[in-house]
Amino acid sequence: MTEKTGTFVVTHAEDESVVLRDVDSAQVHTLAANDGLETHDVLEATIAPEPPLEVSWTLIDVEDRRRVELVDSDLEPTTHSKELVADADVGDLHQHERAGTGEIHVFRVPAAQVEEAARDVLQDEETIARAARLEAVRVEVRRAVDDEDGVLSVRYLPD
């Protein structure tokens, strides 16, 4: 095997090892050592397999390291976000660019499942991977409930 350069999310960190997930391929790599990495760190890095078995990897170079903050906001989705899904079916996802940079994902969920849906988004490993791909450092989950359905807004925010 050869070196691999890409964007990785730390999905698990212990004193002596780290599990990285490549955000593009979803491949998982275990580092044989932990040099101060923590869960939810995002690395633009190069890794290489350790000989002779090549089952664990070594961190060769880190071009950039950032942390993704997950925020369970008490704010409601913006009026614009609510309007985007006003006529949408439950579960339909609408994505739109944020003013400036970043992205917002909005979808309708049954009113009784709004809290559970927000929790799921905040605990989902893919939320961090998506933030890494979008170069976001903050993910903010907002929610609102109207007469029948709820609206969930996931905001991927840059620096």
Rank of each mutant, 00 (worst) to 15 (best):
A129L: 06
D87T: 09
D15V: 12
R67T: 11
D74E: 14
E54T: 13
K4R: 14
E69M: 10
D159L: 12
E54W: 10
V42Y: 01
R67Q: 10
A132T: 03
T127I: 05
R98Q: 11
A48Q: 13
L122G: 11
L157G: 00
L93R: 11
A118P: 01
R119D: 15
T58H: 10
E69K: 14
R67E: 06
T79Y: 09
S153K: 05
V151Q: 11
P110Y: 01
L31Y: 00
V23Q: 07
S25K: 06
A32L: 06
L93E: 02
V121A: 12
Q27P: 07
V71R: 07
R65S: 06
R98H: 07
A26G: 03
E148Y: 14
D35C: 10
E83Y: 13
H105P: 01
V109N: 05
D149R: 02
D146F: 00
E50P: 02
V42I: 08
K82A: 01
V42T: 06
T79E: 15
R138K: 15
A86V: 05
D72E: 09
V9K: 06
T11W: 00
L93M: 02
A88N: 08
T101C: 04
L84Y: 07
E14V: 10
G150H: 12
E125K: 02
D159K: 10
A88D: 08
A132S: 07
E126C: 03
D89E: 14
D74W: 04
A26Q: 06
R66I: 02
V10C: 11
G102P: 03
D92W: 04
L20D: 03
T39P: 12
A136Q: 06
D22T: 11
Q27K: 14
H94C: 01
L31P: 03
V23P: 13
T39S: 13
E125T: 08
T78K: 06
S73T: 05
H80Q: 10
A131L: 04
Y156P: 06
A88Y: 06
V62I: 11
A129D: 14
V18G: 00
A136H: 04
D35R: 15
L134F: 04
V28C: 05
A144I: 00
L134M: 04
A86C: 01
A48D: 09
R119M: 06
V114Q: 00
V151L: 07
A132L: 05
L134S: 02
I128K: 08
A88Q: 07
T11D: 05
E83N: 15
V106D: 01
A33L: 10
T7N: 09
H94D: 02
A48K: 15
V151M: 09
L70S: 09
L53V: 08
R155H: 15
H12S: 13
R155D: 15
V19R: 13
P52R: 09
L37G: 12
E14C: 08
V137G: 13
T2Y: 13
D124V: 01
H80G: 09
R142D: 03
R119G: 14
V106P: 03
A88R: 12
L53G: 11
L134V: 02
L157M: 06
V10I: 12
